[in-house]
């Protein structure tokens, strides 16, 4: 029957760790990571920056959105070792000295979330959207925010929050 029980002498070695440097929210972070560690898991498990969320781990929900070199990407489909030397901005890096970023405040003002789990990804995605400057109308915001699924269904409030923040920037 089954061969289970406590571990015997390992014969399959774990991957070797590679030293990398990430500049996360302006702070240099030296890490030693296995190649298979996603940027998302590096943030959540190695840097304890759990604000970046894992909703599908397959690039389908947008909860893991962060900014790399100022552009919004999905951290779940990025290998941390490939981002060696990169500037990464996460939700933890938006508020400055206790003052919320206008987008964060707009999300609160418009109740642009319920459970809050997709919210960091929504806000980071909206940061990228505003920086890109491609969306002007509500229709364009909707289309260019469609990579961030909100299962609570806060979409109209998310659009309103982004419009408010756009008006301020």
């Amino acid at each position: 029957m089954a061969q289970t029980g406590t571990a015997t002498k390992p014969i399959t070695p774990a991957p070797e760790n590679i030293p990398i440097l990430l500049i996360v929210n302006g702070v240099e972070r030296q890490l030693r990571l296995a190649p298979w560690t996603s940027l998302l898991d590096a943030l959540r498990n190695h840097l304890d920056l759990t604000g970046t969320k894992k909703g599908c781990d397959h690039g389908q929900c947008g909860a893991c959105t962060v900014l790399v070199e100022g552009r919004r990407i999905l951290s779940c489909l990025s290998l941390a070792v490939m981002k060696d030397g990169a500037h990464v901005t996460t939700i933890e890096g938006l508020a400055q000295g206790g003052a919320l970023h206008p987008l964060q405040q707009a999300f609160i003002d418009h109740d642009a979330f319920q459970c809050g789990y997709c919210t960091p990804g929504q806000i980071c995605s909206a940061m990228g959207l505003i920086a890109e400057g491609r969306a002007k109308s509500a229709e364009e915001i909707r289309e260019l925010m469609s990579g961030n699924i909100c299962r609570c269904g806060a979409y109209p409030n998310i659009v309103a929050a982004i419009q408010q923040a756009m008006g301020q920037s």
């Binding site: 508020a95 919320l100 609160i108 109740d111 809050g116």
Partner: peptide, 14 residues
Amino acid sequence: SRIDGRAKVTGEAK
């Protein structure tokens, strides 16, 4: 506005 809003928009909510 939600009293837990700040925790949720800053990533502090665990």
